[in-house]
Amino acid sequence: MIDLRLPIGIFFLLVGLLMAGYGVVSPNDIPHIGMKINGNLDWGIVLTIFGLLMTIFGWRGQRRPPERKNQQPPTH
């Protein structure tokens, strides 16, 4: 089974890059607040970093051999 962090990471990497790129090309401030905050660039960077970390962890997890299923009694 695929390591779920991989598709999640790639998704946010793509969306983050899309938003950050759009923020660079079309630097719109957040509307109605009158402040110089480029929402797309800033949040796009946040998403890109998150996506990158998830991709790395997912890629490493994918290479690890699968855990053996362990049936334990309930623990309290």
């Binding site: 938003m19 759009y22 079309s26 719109n28 401030d29 957040i30 509307p31 949040w43 998403l47």
Partner: peptide, 9 residues
């Protein structure tokens, strides 16, 4: 308050 891009998200 969301500009285009953030609005799509």
């Amino acid at each position: 308050y969301y500009p285009a891009g953030l609005l799509g998200l």
